[in-house]
Every structure is written in C-alpha cells, then in structure tokens.
Design a protein around this nucleic acid. Structure first.
Lengths: 103, 103
DNA sequence: GAAATGGGTTACCTGAAAGTAAACTTCTTT
DNA sequence: AAAGAAGTTTACTTTCAGGTAACCCATTTC
C-alpha cells in the first residue's frame, strides 16, 4: 500500500486550492470580469468581511490562482485577476457551474 | 445588490458538495472502480478512520453524489458507487485531476 | 466459546477556518 | 482641520470538520 497516493491524487490537489468558503464566488467573478478591484469585489460580496475576503485572496495568490496588481495611485488601487495558469481551468469550472445550477 | 446571488452561484454549490478532506479521493476511486465495498475503499485509504470515511460517504449520499448498495449477506456487504447524476461530472473532474497533477 | 469479520455507533477532543470589531496609513476632498 | 476612501492589520471569539479510541451487533470459523 503506498501512502503517497494520498498526496498524488491530482483531484485532491485541485480541490484543496479551490475550496474555501468564498473562493468559488471569487472565481466566478474573476472569470466574468477579467480584472477587478478589491473594493469592487467586496461590493459584489457584501456578506464577507474585508478581512476574510482578503485572506481568501491572499491564499489564492500563494496558490497561484490569482494575481495581484498594485497601482500606486491615490487612493490605493489594487486589482486582482486570474493567474494565467488558472485560465485553463475555465472549461472545467464552467461545467461545474452548470452542474451546480441544475440541481 | 441582490444577496441571493450568493446562493445562486452554481460553482459554489458544486464545490460545497465536492469538497471535504477525503471526498476527492473517494471520487477518484469511484470513477475508477464503478463500485466498491466499504472495507475495500477503506483499505485503499488507510489514513482515514472508518468513522470519518463513513461520514464523508454519508454526506455524499445525502448530496446524491454516491449511492449505497446493501446486500444482506454475511458478513455484511455494503458497496458504494457513483450516483448517476455524478457521472456527467466525469470530464470536469478529469480536467481538474490533470490540472492538479501538473503543478 | 473465543476470536474474527464488516459495517456502524458513541463520546470526547482539537486546530484551523471563518466571524466580529476596531484601528492604521496615506492621501484627497471639503 | 476634519472627514472620507482603499487596502490592510490586529486582536479576540466562535464554529465545526476532522481526529482518536473504544465499543456494538450478527454471524462464521477455529
């Protein structure tokens, strides 16, 4: 019995980085908007606190799911967009979206 | 701002029922084996306790991800297989599997 | 009749995820 | 100078998924 199978399952690894209470919604928005400011995203998701939203985004950044773009304008302007690696997930996520809707 | 969007996001709904520490691995096995006994599944995943494995399976049953088949033989024989509704997820999950492996 | 089997239950514990609330920073507007 | 905006941080609390360990039940085999 090889225990490494545990770590090798690609599905598990994918799900790990995609799951989190607010991540699917973030992905949903980013797939539709291509780039969105932090504050805008927050306005679209008024039930999360800024803190938690930020945490989710930071984790997604570490996992290379999203990219953070900072323009040192004033007022501070930070935007998020999908990381290029994530774009190939589009079709899979669309299927999940449709499947989730139809139940 | 409509809060119901929160509940309507299909991606969120999908992820909710698919995520859980051991569910991706369970899915992985069920997609490969079509039907598998509880004890067999447990042997393939020796790092989960029976209790937790059972919990995951029960949740997946409630969510109509898997089906439970009971044969009242002796010793008790219970098997799990994918629920028909889940089979259409095959392609999406394969993509996630591949994506997860390639990083 | 003792032990093993397969599926499941019970009771209890722990850590990480998520929530709440407030404050900080740097600049702009009034 | 006061107030507000955008992004972030700090500190503290609550919740719950998952973990451990032991036990139950019906039958079979030794």
């Amino acid at each position: 019995m090889n225990y490494t199978e545990f770590e090798q399952c690609g599905l598990k690894r994918s799900m790990e980085v995609l799951s989190g209470k607010w991540k699917p919604l973030i992905l949903h928005h980013l797939f539709h908007e291509k780039e969105i400011r932090f504050i805008e995203l927050w306005r679209k998701m008024p039930r999360v606190s800024k803190k938690v939203l930020l945490e989710q985004l930071q984790q997604m950044q570490e996992h290379r799911i999203v990219e953070r773009i900072e323009r040192n304008d004033f007022p501070p302007q930070v935007a998020y967009r999908l990381h290029p690696d994530t774009k190939s997930l589009g079709p899979a996520l669309q299927m999940l979206e449709a499947w989730g809707k139809s139940r």
